[in-house]
Design a protein around this nucleic acid. Structure first.
Lengths: 192, 192
DNA sequence: TTAAAACGGTGACCTATGTCCTCGTTTTGC
DNA sequence: GCAAAACGAGGACATAGGTCACCGTTTTAA
């Protein structure tokens, strides 16, 4: 499963064959079954996680036990709780697998060492974080100014394919609308 | 007005007296009257802005002309449109002054040069960006899971003092609630 | 100093969306 | 292969919060 990561990091961060070995040296590979968890609220998020295959989700629960999904992480994407990971604080998030998945992950100590050795990796990472911030802001604006239907349409456009891979109520949870509303919207659209 | 910045940067990023001069060399100081603008949508955001005094806001308009405030920037805080600033793309945001204000600002070219010369500045900046991301995520979660009243209470707690400095409809716009709803909430609370 | 604009409050009404429930179908895990 | 769980659809109903309209007060700018 390291192979997928290798392709990714060479293509995106300009890492050479030799340099890939540095990643391999400290990588932890892990296979997950559906519902297997990588992080539970209250724990410290010890790893930076790259998804080689499958699909993870990050969610958070309200006091009354409602789950809200903040992020889907399909193959070729990263996930972690940056706050917990960076500061070794306990996390309020949960990360688990929605499909059988394969991940590669590193501890902060090991990944920081990679940053030291590979400045271009640090630059690439900074870039990802920045982009993440833009998108999160955008999403917030969109959430505040759109109807449930616009949110749904936008989701389908922005994350093509995810819709087909996860149950409806999870998309609802991601968008912050009720399952029922989403179900109705979708059926109104069958024949517009 | 550079004095306020000097205090701030020494205290927060561990910059020495000598190093402060590097900042001064390329800083652009500017006084703003109420309603003066630093960025209009469609323009490129050329500056990283530090607010020495006063209060700025960042807002965005929907297609039907509705204004949504994304951020208040009081004294001792930074603002810019990072996306536009970093990539020289046109911005969808507007930044203007809600009070007579004083700012110090740098072009990307000049500020990047500071990063080169002062690694600790880069580290501090990375930190701010990370924190910004945590908080934006948090705010999004909160927005999705809270009632208008909870949003208002949270705002008052999170941004003490801002409430007293801006008109009600701007807080409403920040929270994504109508002015009327906020007005009612607030009056219900006079005698709880 | 004064006219115009901005602001906050409030009533009346409307509607998008949430909540609760039931039912048939599909998926899953043993 | 089968029992149990998860899922999607849809009806009935409730409601938070939006929209519109009006008014008196305060602030602003010329």
């Amino acid at each position: 499963m390291f192979a997928e990561f290798e392709n990714y990091i060479k293509a995106h961060a300009g890492v050479t064959n030799d340099e890939v070995e540095l990643f391999r040296a400290t990588a932890i590979e892990k296979s997950l079954r559906r519902k297997d968890s990588l992080l539970n609220q209250g724990e410290i998020c010890r790893y930076k996680i790259f998804v080689c295959k499958g699909l993870l989700r990050t969610y958070r629960t309200t006091e009354n036990g409602n789950e809200h999904i903040l992020q889907f992480s399909p193959e070729n994407s990263w996930t972690t709780d940056p706050e917990s990971y960076n500061n070794l604080t306990t996390s309020v998030y949960n990360i688990d697998a929605l499909e059988p998945s394969e991940v590669v992950m590193w501890t902060k100590k090991d990944f920081d060492a990679l940053f030291e050795q590979l400045p271009k990796l640090k630059a690439y990472s900074d870039n990802l974080i920045q982009r993440n911030l833009y998108r999160t802001r955008d999403r917030m604006f969109f959430n505040q100014t759109s109807t449930a239907e616009e949110k749904y349409d936008n989701f389908v456009k922005t994350f093509p394919g995810i819709m087909a891979r996860v149950p409806l109520h999870m998309v609802a949870s991601f968008l912050g609308v009720s399952r029922e509303t989403l179900s109705r919207i979708r059926h109104t659209q069958v024949r517009p």
